[in-house]
Amino acid sequence: MNKYKKITLDGLIFQNPTFMLVLGTCPTLAMIKQSATSAMGMGLTVLVILTLSNIIISALRRVIPNSVRIPCYIVIIATLVTFVQMLLKKFLPDLYESLGAFLALIVVNCIVLGRAEAFASKHTVGEAAVDGIANGLGFTVALTLMGIICEFLGSGSLFGLQIMKSFKIAIFSQPAGAFLVYGIAIAVFTYVIDAFERSRRVKANKLARENLLKEAV
């Protein structure tokens, strides 16, 4: 398999930071209970920061001494977060307000530091960029999906558009509801991936058996 395709599929599905690695739980729970728009906004913000930090860290991987790599990564990530914060405050003030404190907390988001340490510091700039985009997209899609579920069940609306006026299950606008949706989403996602892996293994075994039979004949 092409290495870029593998990196992309890993970030999006097989190593999805939200559903498979359960990283970045704090902003996930905070944003999905708010609205689908906030959840998607948080996802896209992390995508931009993650991609840029992966690129910079990968480019500097031979320059930064190993002993001070973590402080350097944190300074780079914090700088990017501050920069994105300034951009949002200037151009997207509504999103800036809805993300609140969780915007600044991206500095300590495990996904960003995790990918910097586990991937960007060991791979080329191109690979690191693809990894950043894939993981960022994986995070964004996961948050948006759960945000849609929570917003629809919690206030009967989708992306702020009221769909069902009298339908409202208040718990889904609360942290408890967000926990519930997150848990169920992890279970469903893991089940689907497991089923897919199982069918892939069955197919591979079947193919191997047929090849063996052919060779024997």
């Binding site: 001070v68 300074v75 700088t79 300034m86």
Partner: peptide
């Protein structure tokens, strides 16, 4: 190590100062 860390801090600081003047 010290120089690397200081360089990263310096570049970050200068970058943010410039960004702030445009995005304030």
């Amino acid at each position: 190590c010290l120089i690397s860390l200081l360089c990263v801090l310096l570049v970050s600081g200068v970058f943010l100062a410039i960004a702030n003047s445009f995005l304030e």
